[in-house]
């Protein structure tokens, strides 16, 4: 097994007196699909927000290790845009596209942190800027082809059907060239067909060398897709392991079905 690319040690987040996340450890290795599950309110999204810099963790360490350069970065307290630049991108549980921008422009925004042109470049539009613009458009278009949205490039994002919006969010995150992709409930609200297509897409993305951490409620998807599963409840990690191990773990069954399941 290769080195862990994301290492979370003792992550804790307090909101006033409430411990939303309590001492959670997690690690992801290169090329893995890892799922984070748990009942509603277990703190999964808060965990994501801590990882991506939207919240600052109260305690604990988050280290990201670049798979190629081997450079280790401590993410605590970094701004979200810096974290994205480090190579970890995310999608949102409640879709947060740029609604009145076109599908293509949405993905082009993802290219922002990998491109450089600035005010003088924009005004004089020299050869470097033009090349960069061209590259942005072409790369974005390729990514849209990958997720199967190439027919809707000039459509406004808000006019897309729900499932397509979810895929567009993934495309936008991919445009930032992440080696680790965080998906927050990617299948929420999807019908079975869309979910199936999504599973295929996630597998494809993983094969292309992106590791994936996903939060999901759809157990069928989680069980069929993930290499390892972490289970949270009331802000604590209660189990981890392969899908089989987690499925038969009494603590997990208790968390999902309640105390008196066999009474």
């Amino acid at each position: 097994m290769s080195e862990a690319i994301l290492n979370v040690k003792g992550l804790t987040k307090n909101f006033g007196g409430i411990k939303a996340i309590d001492n959670v450890d997690l690690d992801i290795k290169l090329g893995e699909i890892v799922a984070l599950i748990g009942p509603n309110g277990a703190g999964k999204t808060t965990f994501f927000n801590c990882l991506t810099g939207i919240y600052t963790p109260s305690a604990g360490d988050i280290t990201l290790c670049h798979p190629e350069s081997g450079k280790e970065t401590r993410l605590n307290g970094m701004k979200p845009n810096k974290i994205t630049e480090e190579g970890m991108a995310r999608t949102f549980q409640n879709i947060r596209l740029f609604p009145t921008m076109s599908v293509l422009e949405n993905v082009m925004i993802g290219r922002h942190c990998r491109t450089k042109s600035f005010i003088p470049g924009a005004i004089f539009r020299g050869p470097a800027t033009r090349r960069e613009e061209e590259e942005i458009v072409n790369v974005s278009y390729e990514i849209l082809e990958k997720v199967g949205l190439e027919k809707q490039v000039n459509e406004e994002a808000r006019n897309l059907p729900y499932g397509a919006q979810r895929r567009l969010e993934i495309a936008r995150a991919l445009a930032t060239e992440p080696f680790l992709l965080l998906l927050d409930e990617p299948a929420a609200g999807m019908n079975p067909n869309e979910t199936e297509a999504l599973v295929g897409l996630i597998r494809k993305i993983c094969k292309e060398g992106h590791s994936i951490l996903l939060i999901e409620h759809d157990m069928k998807l989680v069980m069929s897709l993930s290499d390892r599963i972490f289970v949270m409840d009331y802000g604590r990690k209660i189990a981890k392991g392969t899908p089989e191990e987690v499925r038969s773990n009494p603590a997990v069954i208790k968390a999902y079905l309640g105390e008196d399941v066999d009474a």
């Binding site: 845009n81 949102f92 740029f98």
Partner: peptide
């Protein structure tokens, strides 16, 4: 434009 539409998504996409 993206900043006008959604600030949080903007930051998550690597815009300062």
């Amino acid at each position: 434009l993206a900043l006008r539409e959604d600030e949080i998504a903007c930051e998550a996409m690597g815009i300062d």
